[in-house]
Design a binder for these strands. Sequence first.
DNA 1: TCTGGGGTCCTAGGACCC
DNA 2: TCTGGGGTCCTAGGACCC
Length: 419
Amino acid sequence: MTNKPIIMHIDVNSAFLSWEACYRLQQGDLLDLRTIPSIVGGNPDTRRGIVLAKSVPAKEFNIKTGESLYSALQKCPTLTIVAPRFDLYLKCSNSLIKLLEEYSPSIQRYSIDECFLDYTNMEQHFGDPLSAAHKIKERIKNELGFTVNIGISNNKLLAKMASDFQKPDAVHTLYPHEIKEKMWPLPVGDLFMVGRATKSKLHKLGIFTIKDLATADPKFLQKHLKSHGILIWNLANGIENSPVIEENSTPIKGIGNSTTIPFDVTDRKTAHLILLSLVETVSMRLRNEKACTRLVSISIRTNEFNNYSHQKKLTTPTDCTNHIFMHACQLFNEAWKKEPIRKLGVRVSELSNNNFSQVSLFDSIDTEKQKSIDKTIDELRLRYGSHTVFRASFLQSNLKAITGGVSIEEELPIISGKL
DNA sequence: TCTGGGGTCCTAGGACCC
DNA sequence: TCTGGGGTCCTAGGACCC
């Protein structure tokens, strides 16, 4: 007899804000950001002014994640705004994973602040799922200093929906027999995979709650929403059976880097320099993954918020900074319609393994030289910091020579003391 | 909207081949 | 060419997630 899967979904409450708050308390700060209207937000001066996370008191002012700081300040003029620190968040996330690993060998980090834990067959060690979840939640609060919501069910979708119920600092179950009572009354937009566009289509079809969706005719949904209609009909009925996938068990599909520029770019030369700064990290991450790319794409966002992209297949896969940069410039030149540019992006995909020696008949001496330069620079940057080596072309500019970075795995020191 | 950055998957249309 | 049908590959764009 096989046991039904038991899946937990662990979701950090207002992750970035909680983590900032913990860190500040740990540094001796007396104010807990979670107790006042506060947000983690980007810098409007560099045109990154959006809300990344909000405290519960800020939420009471109807401040939403993703809205502009300007609009948030209109709603709450006394709002406290703190800058994001992604390196800290990654450490906190790693500490969380490490604690969870004591309860199951099968953990999937779904994002920096969410993960799935496969609790199947673990009752014998740590008790029934509900009491284990409470124990885990309390340990995180006491040992790491932040609160989480934990959802429990027989599959990932239902566990995730459950963790989204009443917040913060709570455990909820959503087993299949509880779907009608706990999930069906919710607005259809609360369902995983029903975003803005799908929600508005569903409303036009007379579907407003998850129950409306679950009891609709799947053929009717397919007619209006293609395969996505079938997918969300299944989800509304709690049908989902994807496994908990451990980290590094699936190869990554692509690597991208993009940046909003503090000013509008109106000339090709500056655009190329920014592309280079983006390619520097993309290609380094690519080499770090021991992969080569066969598809390079660039994306442009204009000052009027129009987005477009351009891509091309390479005849020979590559991991060389200069090769990717050259293709990115060419793509940019072909695509750019000369409007002022707000944001530029570079992405590589169709990755293949570079384990086998890439030396082919077509590899020139120049390629070999490029590869050895890349290797040397990667090592220098790893050893002495990413800004120890940069291109001379940036010397005369005010631009960042490298955009984004390669993250280093670390954990946060244990935070002592309670909330 | 004074509107970030990093991903994945799906679809439509055109090119090209038989 | 007032021309069919089916398959694959490629590209651009849009949807979703965090």
